[in-house]
Design a protein around this nucleic acid. Structure first.
Lengths: 237, 237
DNA sequence: GGTCAACCTATACGCAGGTATGGATGGCGC
DNA sequence: GCGCCATCCATACCTGCGTATAGGTTGACC
């Protein structure tokens, strides 16, 4: 605690950015895709009354083309659309790494379709006619899940942002150091002198904002950037 | 690796057990619960032809009372039983921390029931009459999932087994050391001298079979035994 | 009462980690 | 060309870590 004073403002060698963690502002955004205008209208008024921001779309293409929609915390998706299957839309979202929680809706669904939808990661599967409380409960769950995902991703992004500032050599050293190798062993593996390794190590510790090796190891786990040549524990030979 | 020779056979101070990792032997065991004898019989012959070991039960109670059944890699469960709801059985399994992958079956299911079953963690939901290929595919998925869970749990159990051999003091030290504190700081927190901390530290490193601090940190993450007084990274003050 | 495990301490030595000082090289952009 | 950056190295010094040696105190168990 008082033993070592850490000064990081006086050094001019490396500019270390402090990444801002993205915070969700205001009420959550819910998107609705349904080809039935009556459904869209009913959903919009119901969700607005529950204090959500709402955007509605008649087709998946409209949704995918909308810049605002990428911030959605929940997607209410009709599985029975004119042009495309709602389950295909789920797949399309997955392919584009869009991780919005999906609530599926249907008028005439069957069990295999439900199973496919749920296995594809849907939060819930609502059948028409909708009970308002069911819709709000499902949307509530989806928004809550989205919040958890966002905060988890915020942590990961912060680490990635810092990692991006490392030079290639510093990443090499970080990988081997977090694998449990001593400076001498790292030096041998990278064909360097031990002093050089120490310098890189000190630099990357500062750049990663790591106060200890334990910190760095946990960051490496987050990054998945560890040298995975061994089973799970134990220093790499 | 040749720099430091680690000898752990000659010391007589601590007996450190090497935990055996449980390995699944032979063909996987599949359990079937259905009140219809015809279904049980058909399932049994189908699954045996696919080289699974099979146990069938008419009621959930029979299954829960069977000692052999706890090793099951898959449970085929009828959701429409005489006495108890199949979904309640899922809940009962969860309450008893039985983590067997479940495949639900039904003759007259509806979508809300399917959603409940899938949200409760079912691998699949089959509708009667069954297509053989669907059954085998679902069971195959369940068994594969079980295999992944077993290997993951094997790793965790190994660490827990080692951790169980630590004395209370060694656990204190491990928590603070893996939180990133220096020996001196650990000593201050526990009101000890630094030498004592070093001894505990050396002992626990040997007992945990950790070759480096990085190893120990990863084990602590597995255990969830870290001092979680800080946000996520950064040494505890 | 003896034995053992767990716990604690002091001193001392050697090695590993970290930093500072003081260089050197090569690539890139203005 | 010049500055900037990443990379590399050597020497030196201090701190931290790990172990060995050589004790001590409790409390449980036979």
């Amino acid at each position: 605690m008082g033993d070592r004073t850490i000064v990081d403002g006086g050094r001019s060698g490396d500019a270390v950015p402090t990444p801002a963690i993205p915070v969700q502002e205001g009420p959550a955004l819910v998107c609705v895709i349904d080809d039935d205008a009556d459904v869209r209208c009913a959903m919009e008024s119901l969700l607005r009354s529950a204090d959500y921001r709402v955007l509605t779309f008649a087709t998946p293409d409209e949704y995918l083309a909308c810049a605002e929609a990428v911030d959605a915390a929940c997607l209410l998706l009709d599985v029975y659309l004119d042009g495309a299957d709602g389950l295909e839309v789920q797949q399309a979202l997955h392919d584009r790494s869009i991780a919005v929680p999906v609530v599926l809706m249907t008028g005439q669904g069957d069990i295999p379709m439900t199973v496919r939808g749920m296995k594809a990661g849907a939060v819930d599967f609502l059948t028409k006619p909708f009970a308002e409380q069911d819709v709000l409960r499902a949307v509530g769950e989806a928004v809550a899940l989205d919040g958890r995902r966002r905060s988890a991703r915020g942590q990961d992004d912060a680490v990635h942002t810092l990692y991006a500032t490392l030079t290639p050599r510093e990443r090499d050293v970080m990988g081997l150091v977090t694998a449990g190798l001593m400076n001498k062993q790292v030096a041998a593996k990278l064909a360097l002198s031990e002093v050089t390794v120490k310098i890189h190590r000190g630099n990357l510790m500062r750049k990663m904002h790591a106060q200890s090796l334990a910190d760095l190891v946990r960051m490496a786990e987050t990054l998945g950037a560890r040298e995975r040549t061994v089973t799970r524990y134990g220093a790499a030979g």
